[in-house]
Amino acid sequence: MDQNLLFEYFSQVIGPDWKNSAPKQLSGWDVVEALWPLNNDFRNRYRDFVALPYEARFEGKADLAQQHFVFKGKWPPVSIEVWRVILERHQQAIQVALANELAGNSLMPIPDRLPRSARTGAAVLYLLQQMKLPFAVVDRAGYSPDANPPHS
């Protein structure tokens, strides 16, 4: 996580007075719901990159792509290797969120004035940006972005 980027995002979405907002804790399930829409972004090309091995040398480019997505509202053109890094981060972030949900832990603080529509960007910056993978990389060949979205 790059805290300065996250704070910049809060300023962009809420305004410079976001610091006057009360903090709100998102549960693990809230974070799963925030990250789930990224599946739509994988849908068009996931067959091209899902079976690729994870290559750490593309992590920096993944960070840049994620920043572009969050601040510009769309993904820049990225290689399939970068998509593979983003997919692995996404899947592991969902695992972290679910583990926190099961343990009854809150996962992520946000300003209470952050709109629900901005939670995806906040979750990307909080969990995926500069992510050190908490689990071993696994074969994602069986991944499908067509799974039903979660409902609370």
Score class of each variant (00 low, 15 high):
S144I: 10
S144E: 08
D48F: 03
S106Q: 12
R140G: 04
D2K: 00
L26F: 04
L98K: 14
F49G: 05
L52I: 05
L87D: 04
H151M: 13
D112P: 08
A34K: 12
A51F: 02
T120D: 03
P53R: 14
V78K: 13
A97Y: 09
A62G: 05
H68F: 01
I14S: 11
F42I: 08
V13L: 01
P37Y: 10
E55R: 14
V50K: 15
M1C: 06
A99R: 14
Q12E: 05
F42H: 12
R57I: 12
L52G: 02
K24Q: 13
T120R: 13
I14T: 02
R119I: 14
F42T: 06
F42Q: 10
P111M: 08
F42C: 09
Q91G: 00
S79Q: 15
N100D: 08
K72L: 04
A97G: 13
V82L: 03
A141D: 15
T120P: 03
S152R: 02
V138P: 14
W75V: 03
M131R: 06
D146P: 00
I110L: 10
Y46D: 07
K19V: 14
D146K: 15
A97K: 11
Y143D: 10
G60K: 07
Y9G: 06
R113T: 15
L128A: 13
W18K: 09
G28K: 03
Y126S: 07
P16T: 06
G28Q: 09
L52W: 03
F135V: 01
Q129G: 01
I14A: 08
F71S: 00
L127M: 09
L38F: 05
A103P: 15
V31S: 15
L133C: 05
W18I: 01
V32K: 02
L87G: 08
R57Q: 11
R57M: 11
F69A: 00
N105M: 12
F49V: 14
F7D: 15
Q67E: 11
L127N: 04
P150F: 06
K72C: 01
Q95C: 14
A56Y: 10
S117P: 09
A122S: 09
K72S: 03
W83T: 09
G73V: 07
Q129D: 03
E101K: 06
